[in-house]
Amino acid sequence: MSGANEYRPFILALALALALAELIWRRWGLGRGYDLGSAAASLGVMVLGIVPKQIGALVLGTVLFALSWLAPWRMPMDDWRIWVACFLGVELAYYWFHRCSHMIRWFWANHAVHHSANEFVLPSAYRLGWFGPLMGSWLFFAPLVLIGFPPAMVMGLLGINLLYQYLLHTELVGRLGPLEWVLNTPSHHRVHHSREEAYLDCNFGGVVIVFDRLFGTYRAEPEGRRLDYGLVHRLESNNPLRIGLHELGALWHDVLVVPGWRQKVAVLFASPADSERLAESSRA
């Protein structure tokens, strides 16, 4: 993984250059707005998350490498068929991780950061929760190393998955024809980031969209209009600390409000909507 670190400055510079090009295109090419305050807040979330995310990456790597010793065999890294199988395995694991991040409030408390931007532009991709591995995201990828895929392969393909998704956070790329059937595209991901009721909790794929089609969570982008983006309970703040911690704080508050350990567990692991209703009923 140390070799990947050499490319980080180049990747970051390319991401910033693409974001600048998008800003120019939106403002002066399309005459469309661009919220510089929100974009700066997204950068702030990324900067404040450097240390906790480095710790999280260490946790993820340590856990996966430790679990790999329990595997009955280890698959080789020099066979392209193993790479293809691992890619599909990582995509499936990511699909369920992402889906559970919407359906279980414990995981949503971290993932809500990513949906907090009210404008769908490339810098909104920087809004990533700070505590994923510390809150158990490694659980979804552990089965891959337990059946013999090398941890370095799993982590490398997961990194590619996340890098690919940066390019999905834009309104400047339309539909991509036949590729829409297989790949996750900006069109699919715009739907994923919509706060409209008809499009909540769908299109969870990383690089591919096939698992959404298989498991019934695919929704197509409506034609002829733009979607409304952001959280259902819209967050207007551009304070990176508030963006990064607001839903964790709300979850902690709701856990304290409800009586009894059974209800507290329910608040933690119910869906976000059910969890909030349970806490609201306790306050009434």
Rank of each mutant, 00 (worst) to 15 (best):
W252D: 04
S101W: 06
Y229H: 02
A125W: 10
L144K: 02
F269K: 00
A71P: 04
W108Y: 13
A112H: 11
L20T: 10
L172P: 08
H193I: 07
L200Q: 13
V63F: 10
L172N: 14
N110G: 09
Q165P: 07
Q263K: 11
L248P: 14
V258T: 03
A279S: 05
P9M: 06
V84S: 12
M46E: 13
S282G: 14
N239I: 13
R127D: 04
S275D: 03
P178S: 12
A13K: 00
V182Q: 01
V63P: 05
N110I: 15
L227P: 10
D79W: 00
L64G: 09
I82T: 09
D274K: 12
Y218E: 08
I104E: 05
A220N: 14
L183R: 10
F211E: 08
S271V: 05
G44F: 00
G174Y: 06
P222K: 01
M75H: 06
E91A: 02
A198P: 09
V208W: 06
L30V: 11
A57H: 01
R127T: 01
W108A: 07
L48R: 04
P151I: 00
R175T: 05
V210I: 11
L18H: 06
W73D: 09
L16H: 08
L235V: 03
V267G: 08
S116F: 01
Q263E: 12
W252Y: 11
T170P: 07
I24V: 14
A112T: 09
I24L: 12
S124H: 14
S101C: 08
V63Y: 04
G205N: 03
Y126V: 06
E22G: 03
G244V: 05
W25Q: 00
L162G: 05
D212W: 00
A93Y: 01
I11W: 04
W69T: 14
L60N: 03
A71D: 02
L179K: 02
Y7V: 12
A125N: 07
H188C: 02
W106E: 12
G216I: 11
L67I: 02
V154H: 02
N238W: 03
N118F: 10
A19Q: 06
L70G: 08
M155G: 05
S275Q: 07
P178Q: 14
W69K: 14
K264V: 08
H115Q: 02
N5D: 13
L139D: 08
F141W: 13
V59T: 05
P222Q: 03
V267E: 09
K53R: 15
L16C: 11
W80F: 11
A117C: 15
Y126A: 09
V255E: 09
H102D: 03
C86F: 01
S137K: 15
T217E: 01
A112G: 13
A13P: 06
